[in-house]
Design a protein around this nucleic acid. Sequence first.
RNA 1: GCGCCGGUAGCUCAGCUGGAUAGAGCACCAGGCUUCGAACCUGGGGGUCGGGGGUUCGAAUCCCUCCCGGCGUGCCA
Length: 641
Amino acid sequence: MLSDFKSELSALLADRIQALFGVEYDPIVEVPPRRELGDLAFPAALHLARTLKRNPRGIAEELAEDFPSPDFVREIRVEGAGYLNFFLDRSLVTRQLLTEPLIQPEPNSGERVVLEHTNINPNKAAHIGHLRNAVLGDVLSKVLRALGNTVEVENYIDDTGVQLADVVVGFLDLRKMRLEEVAALPEPFDYYCWDLYSEVGRWYEEDAQNQELRRSTLQELEHGSGPRAEMGRLVSRRVVSRHLATMRRLSITYDLLTHEGAVLGLDFFSEAFDQLKSTGAIHLEDDGKNAGCWVMPLSESEEFAGLEDPDKVIVRSDGTVTYVGKDIAYQLWKFGLLDKDFQYRFWEAEDVWETTVDGEPGHPAFGRAERVINVIDIRQSYLQKIVRAGLEALGYHDQASKSIHFAYEMVTLSPATARQFGFLEEDGEEEARSLEMSGRKGIGVKADDLIDQLEAKSREEISSRNRELSAEALDVLARQISVAALRFFMVKATTNRVIAFDLDEALNFEGDSGPYLQYSAVRALNIGRRLGEAGLPTQVSSSQVGDLPPEVWADDLWDLILTVALIPQKTAAAGESLELSLLARHALDLAQKFHAIYHRHPILQEEDLEIRNARLATMQVFVQGLTVLSDLLGLPLPDRM
RNA sequence: GCGCCGGUAGCUCAGCUGGAUAGAGCACCAGGCUUCGAACCUGGGGGUCGGGGGUUCGAAUCCCUCCCGGCGUGCCA
């Protein structure tokens, strides 16, 4: 709606510039910082000043003179150094917002997207770093769907990797436990593995001999048979089950679990290998340090300029395939470029499809994406680039350009939090630096622990102000608040910023927080309830709004309405740039505006009908906008708190 | 060494396709609950936008250079 206004004004302005000055110009639209300056701003005159060798204000005034303004424009003014500013018809815009759905994707504009996220090694409990991944992935899936795409969410389980092997060694060789004993271990199983994993790390260091066990275990995992593989399956299964439960607490679910074991078992790589060989994308090196390896040259690509070794090993000299090799094959499958497909089985207990070697019929179609997005932390950028370069080398240029790495920075622990958890000495040396998490060392804050603490804090806050709640209602509410707090915390950070996780900050429900947003919604709903109790209408119709005189729209009311009108563009920008914090910040901005208005423009006591209706309409627009943003961010909106 | 990212208020961060008085939150100070719920609001103090140079009518934003911090650069994943 607003974007239609923008493009209409842009076109009119471009024509006018052409007519007056004979110059081609594609106008840029901005939103002025303050409402008294206008609603849409064109800095065209500032840009044209140089080429026309005239002062910008003069140009702007000439442009404004007799501007053929459409009916949605109330006033045109020249402001500042030479901005051409438009004031919109507030009643008209508000009426439209209340009439149409906020986000309407162009029909048939969407793509089939495979979105992979979470990808936690199935050998230990999830920690807060994994939460950043999962929350970003989940929010992205919602944003892409809202923009009209079909999204398949996959969670890749590396059930044949060294990390799992280490825990298998821990059970079999360090603890000397049998399969039945491991199966009988009580929950939380992933917590048990967390400790065991770091213990194995220390055990390896004690005696290099111990580390030999890792190699043989890894081989068995890859082959998929033998007692070690069996133990691997059990551990992986139990841990994944726990990860899924953790994610469900945050309302994060998946369409498909893809297992590395299936990629190996079905030998996806052999076909990819044939493709890579026949296109000349890789070649067998016969001397030098990579002698005997199949390598992919990277020297031709500018992205890899300056590398010491311009070749990437795909198949090792012992014939085994590297991680990148497997990943290229897997990426080909995602795009439907591999003749092979997985077999599938439905995991009843977890309510999710998963890949297998020998499956069952009747499964939905998976893969065959037009766009593939992998949510993986920034440290994997190099490898993700190589995967893309692999597709490029195979001649799949379109798919290469649609292989997107959604990279985000790490989560570390703030010094205070690290000390709190005993990872740093209590009042230790001036170590003001944050601490990197490490599964291997057992350093990190477990996801479930954090969620537990958030729920406890929520409970405390609720009961300090709301005594007559039932136990069930309290549970639901505490969960809703903690989910919002956590999800908002993870999304509000820009992706290329390292989060130094601080527990106290995460547990703060004031200011820039999920509960702050929820509270604004609760307040709005309350007003509706109170209006109903007072026998007053709780809604204004869009036609009533359209008839309101312009003077009822105070600047701060109108500012909030314009903020809602900007949601579609913000959403599109977030989806395109993969900068989801844009949405979190916009939601915050919106809630802030509502809280401020709440105190200045009471509805219940207002006796002037038109003013009350304008305020009520603003509230309706607000609830609509906040609901859309909360849905995108996955924040539940309670009706009280 | 090379590459990528970060350095903005005491702390955590927005702003960075150049443009309208550098903005939030936390913390601090002063106010506001018999009036739609104070998880809130209003006001205040606090900034050489890492340093230096350049381009421009105009630079936190673009270019060069230096400094500090993080990450990457494996026949590990």
